[in-house]
Simulated scan of single mutants.
Amino acid sequence: MKDKKILKRVNYWVTIGIVLIICIGTFTWWNNSKKKTPHHKLKPQPALIDNTSTRPASYTTKEFKNLLSQNYPDIYKNLNFKQKPTFYVIPGLIQSAAIKYTPPGQGQPGIAYDMDPQGLAIIDHKYLIISAYSKSKTFDSVLWVLDFKTGRFIKTIALNNIDHVGGIAYDKDHKRLWVATINQYQRAQVQSVTLKEIEKYNFADCKIKLNT
């Protein structure tokens, strides 16, 4: 009889222990599942990459957030600052790698201090493309390529024109970035550059020619 009572007690406490382990395990899993995986912290980019600035030109992130909350409170409260990136830093506003359009140094790599951002397009949620032109018309227009997921600047692409290039759109079916330009007769036209050309482009190769 004593052996049976001892066995019952052992079974009782073993059962309680198993239930507690299951409860603790379930709670731990549930608690961890609620926590979002923190965004991988990327090392700060250099202030310049291939002569193109990557830092904000007007405000620090803190100043930008303050201005945004004051002037656009409805937008600010709907932004998730834990998500990266919540917004993108436009590169090249302080200076940008570019190709000289006018002499001296025509056709040679240089540094433009007057690039004006115009258009924006997203390529397969992989790249963010920003187009810009030289306000003084002394440099050819450019495309700035950013990583869509992290917002990090990748490279500058020099175009073979000085147009505003404000209208850009990605054609997913044909894998082409279409760019609104002007032809030699000052008439509006649309030209394109393939995704393959964008990914392979190296600024050292100078200008990329758009296809009509």
Rank of each mutant, 00 (worst) to 15 (best):
Pro56Gly: 00
His164Cys: 06
Ile157Ala: 02
Gly167Gln: 03
Pro44Cys: 04
Arg152Cys: 14
Pro117Ile: 00
Lys200Ser: 07
Thr37Asp: 04
Tyr101Arg: 15
Gln95His: 10
Asn211Ile: 11
Pro73His: 05
Gly105Pro: 10
Trp144His: 14
Leu143His: 05
Gly25Cys: 02
Phe81Trp: 13
Lys172Ser: 13
Lys62Gly: 01
Ile168His: 00
Arg187Asp: 11
Gly105Phe: 12
Thr212Lys: 15
Lys84Asn: 11
Gln108Asn: 15
Asp205Ile: 05
Asn66Tyr: 04
Ala204Trp: 05
Asp147Gly: 02
Val142Gln: 06
Thr194Asn: 08
Asp124Tyr: 14
Lys62Thr: 09
Phe148Val: 00
Leu128Lys: 04
His125Tyr: 15
Lys65Asp: 05
Ala57Trp: 09
Ile90Asn: 10
His40Met: 07
Thr194Arg: 05
Thr102Ser: 15
Ala47Trp: 02
Asp74Phe: 12
Ala97Leu: 09
Pro109Ala: 09
Ile130Asn: 03
Leu120Tyr: 09
Pro103Phe: 12
Tyr170Phe: 15
Tyr113Gly: 14
Lys209Glu: 12
Thr102Gln: 13
Ile49Ala: 01
Asn202Ser: 09
Gln95Leu: 12
Asp114Glu: 14
Val14Lys: 10
Ser69Val: 07
Ile24Ala: 12
Leu128Asn: 03
Leu120Arg: 08
His174Tyr: 14
Ile22Cys: 10
Arg187Phe: 06
Ile111His: 07
Leu20Cys: 13
Ile123Ser: 07
Asn80Trp: 06
Leu177Glu: 02
Ile99Arg: 07
Lys35Phe: 05
Thr26Ala: 11
Cys23Gln: 05
Gly119Leu: 01
Leu67Val: 03
Trp29Lys: 08
Val10Glu: 04
Asp74Tyr: 15
Lys36His: 05
Asn32Trp: 05
Lys8Leu: 15
Thr60His: 03
Pro117Phe: 01
Lys100Tyr: 12
Gly151Met: 05
Phe87Ile: 03
Pro85Met: 04
Gln186Met: 10
Tyr201Met: 06
Leu159Val: 03
Ser141Asp: 05
Asn160Ser: 15
Asp163Pro: 00
Phe87Asp: 11
